[in-house]
Design a binder for these strands. Structure first.
Lengths: 145, 145
DNA sequence: CGACAATAAATCGTGTGCGATATAAAAGCT
DNA sequence: AGCTTTTATATCGCACACGATTTATTGTCG
């Protein structure tokens, strides 16, 4: 059916544009921290658990090393992390938060609240919607693998 | 609360990764058409209504001219569209589907079905979820403007 | 032990995305 | 008409994002 090719009915398009919309809301908040959105995600990941590997971060963020390596180099240049080859396995690069990187967490604490406010939804709605989108993501990833 | 900074609870992260997941499912399908995902969106837009302007397309796709201009030039090089300055207003560029661009629609008809299959969800669920995500997008865009 | 496969990052090329700026045309104003 | 402002695209610089490939190291198997 030709009717299938309607942009406004594509859930993928909704997700694609929502992702951009989130970015626009995050931008002014993250500018104050000197981070881009993907950099912020990497920092959140390290705040949760310091000294992760590039590969470990990639699995959690669903990103390739070809994306992460340059991004992490920028975070290192910014002074937020250190990148060190593992002694046990020289192939692996371990990421450590610097003191400045740890301090940045305090300044980032207010960000999630701003995003929730901008979403115009209450916590329950967001939790439910988030779970549905994660389930969708899992189905897509399974299908693509 | 420090507990706020948990990656797995971020709806933005769910949306961000779901968007990438969609891209991975689309890639092999769109490779056959010689299109990237954003190029595909632009073509869908023109299949719905031919002879739109760059600005009009940008409003529908939520993209800037700095993104669209190079993308549309690639579609022109590929032979799917023509870009022509309007006679009435020389500032405006009008986009016309070529015959090849129109023919491509037939080959694209099967794509949405494949995506729905990959999502592992029935039509009703997708319609509902799509509406929720669009509402979220609108709230975010309103907040950012 | 040594060739070979597997693994982890990094590199490279292409294509988005966007903010800031530039360019050119149209519209508005005196 | 002449000058200013607005509007529509285009250009530029930077930062993703990924597939394909490369490099270096580790693991494996005869």
């Amino acid at each position: 059916m030709s009717d299938q090719l309607k942009l406004d009915t594509f859930i993928c398009f909704a997700v694609y544009t929502a992702s951009h919309a989130f970015n626009r809301v995050y931008k002014p908040l993250l500018d104050k921290l000197g981070l881009t959105y993907p950099q912020y995600l990497a920092m959140v990941c390290l705040w949760e658990e310091d000294s992760q590997t590039v590969g470990g971060l990639g699995e959690k963020l669903f990103l390739e090393s070809s994306t992460l390596t340059p991004l992490l180099k920028r975070l290192e240049t910014a002074g937020y992390i250190r990148r060190e080859r593992s002694r046990q396995d020289e192939r692996v690069v371990v990421l450590h938060l610097t003191e400045e990187g740890k301090r940045l967490k305090e300044k980032a604490e207010t960000v999630p609240g701003c995003i929730i406010d901008a979403s115009g939804r209450d916590a329950d709605q967001l939790v439910r919607l988030q779970a549905e989108i994660v389930a969708l993501r899992e189905a897509l990833n399974k299908s693509a693998s």
